[in-house]
């Protein structure tokens, strides 16, 4: 278990989705991956598959047509996951606030953990945001850990928690 946690902290893979932003934050996100800022120093890789991702970087004010795709992507990312809203328009709408085809930010659709301001967000700001997201990822990972008094049951059942034995454990206490 510990080895997975360590791996996650050392190499968080990111998933990027554009929900109707102006491309400004998206190209800055790509610039973060290129030699000047080279975020692969932290072991971060941009992945196209949500099932391999830990950090979800979302740009754009969430247009009505993107909403369902965003929700699907969020549900496919395995726990623990952190959502980072990059750029003003994904935080609260920015200049697109109160337009007819826009949802006023990512938080209206899925829970957001870190808000990165800036229009467009600088690479430095994005790196700051991701560093903050890493702390949250670690905390969330810890929260997901199995409590010590249940560890015996889990080990006995090879990873899965059995309902019967859980109830039995509760009854005993």
């Amino acid at each position: 278990m510990k080895i997975f946690e360590l791996g996650k902290a050392k190499s968080p893979w990111i998933l990027h989705y554009n929900t109707g932003s102006c491309n400004g934050c998206d190209i800055e996100l790509l610039a973060v991956l290129t030699p000047r800022y080279d975020v692969e120093r932290f072991g971060m890789l941009n992945k196209g598959n949500p099932k391999q991702a830990d950090i979800l970087l979302i740009t754009g004010p969430v247009t009505k047509r993107c909403r369902e795709r965003l929700l699907n992507l969020y549900l496919q990312v395995p726990e623990p996951k952190v959502v980072v809203a990059v750029g003003t328009c994904s935080c609260g709408g920015g200049v697109f606030r109160h337009m007819y085809n826009v949802e006023n930010g990512v938080e209206r659709v899925i829970p957001v953990d870190v808000y990165v301001p800036g229009c467009a967000a600088r690479p430095q700001q994005i790196i700051d945001g991701v560093v903050k997201a890493l702390q949250i990822l670690r905390e969330k990972g810890r929260a997901l850990e199995v409590p010590p008094h249940l560890k015996k049951i889990v080990r006995g059942r090879e990873g899965g928690i059995d309902r019967e034995s859980l109830l039995e454990d509760l009854r005993r206490r």
Binding site: S21, T63, C66, V95, H98, V102
Partner: peptide, 26 residues
């Protein structure tokens, strides 16, 4: 159409013409 936000409409209802250059930049 995934990125349709309705900027043309907002320029004729929400923003006056002095703010228009900043809005269309987005």
């Amino acid at each position: 159409s995934y990125v349709h936000r309705g900027i043309e409409k907002s320029l004729t209802t929400m923003y006056d013409f002095k703010k228009a250059p900043y809005v269309v930049g987005r």
